[in-house]
Write a protein that binds this DNA or RNA. Structure first.
Lengths: 156, 156
DNA sequence: AAACCCTTCACCCGAAAGTATGATTTGCAT
DNA sequence: ATGCAAATCATACTTTCGGGTGAAGGGTTT
């Protein structure tokens, strides 16, 4: 929500006053022409109340529109710019193909065991790869390695 | 979190009618006692209008706060690179401010201890936050939580 | 006042991650 | 063939994570 609230308030007040004036005029007009005394004060009050409650609700909604939630809006993830791997940096950092594969799976949130299963190697092998990755990416943790890799355009 | 809308509406209507009745009574009473014809119809209308606009705004706020009304607003997500946090999803997932702060620092590659130091709280507190985050993001690991959060547009 | 959420913190325990070191095999280049 | 990097695996050990549970205080809503 990026618009001036103050600017809008002024307009709202103007509209508010205008609506009120028109309404009063309309009622006066009707009162002395057609309906006259058939309708009691209670009726008028009711009409006004309902009308302005509606206005109020509308205002309330408008003012807090940002808080309205969406029930189902699954983001179809990346409509982003097409990711282009920077292989130069890959070579520059001395990251091998296998290590990069591990890095990818790591970034997807897989555990070492899951990566091992996916690549049909042992857990220890993955540990070795990750350890080497951390050294080459100057990271202490996998989350740090992932962040580093994204900054280096090694990951989308 | 869903709850009975109908039950609330019934109560609101009752209160609404009651307030209206009381107001009418009050006005009638005043009309024939003290103020009488000094005040014009316009004045009454104005008072009623303002009053019920207030009620309306209050209602609007209450309704939106309770998330009863849902208006889907699927944003097309402009091709620019500026990250726009999707607060709707944040609320939808029930992620608190503190939890989000932790999530941010987590995504930057910090350990729980580092996050604790940065936020001046204990390690155990961060552990609680992360645990709750994993539940809310349906993740088993921090790397998975980060990946999930990025897909949900909660993180750049 | 009661119910509820957020934030904070604690303790325990098991699982996963990370460190260090060493070994074997394979493919590729000198 | 020799040397070397890559890939594989192992053992042992430390650190970090994560799950489960409980609880206290502050704030808001009912």
């Amino acid at each position: 929500m990026q618009f001036s609230i103050l600017a809008n308030v002024k307009r709202i007040i103007i509209w508010y006053g205008l609506a009120l004036a028109i309404l009063v005029f309309l009622l006066k007009f009707l009162e002395y022409r057609y309906i006259v005394r058939d309708l009691s004060l209670e009726f008028y009050l009711g009409v006004i109340a309902v009308l302005f409650t509606t206005v109020g609700i509308w205002l309330g909604l408008k003012l807090t529109r940002k808080k309205v939630i969406t029930i189902s809006a699954p983001q179809p993830s990346p409509p982003d710019t097409i990711f282009q791997l920077d292989e130069q940096i890959l070579q520059q950092k001395g990251i091998s193909k296998r290590e990069y594969k591990v890095l990818e799976l790591m970034a997807k949130g897989h555990s070492n065991q899951e990566i091992a299963d996916k690549l049909f190697v042992s857990l220890n092998t993955i540990k070795t790869h990750t350890s080497n990755l951390f050294i080459k990416l100057e990271a202490k943790r996998r989350t740090q390695a992932i962040e580093r890799a994204k900054q280096l355009r090694l990951l989308p």
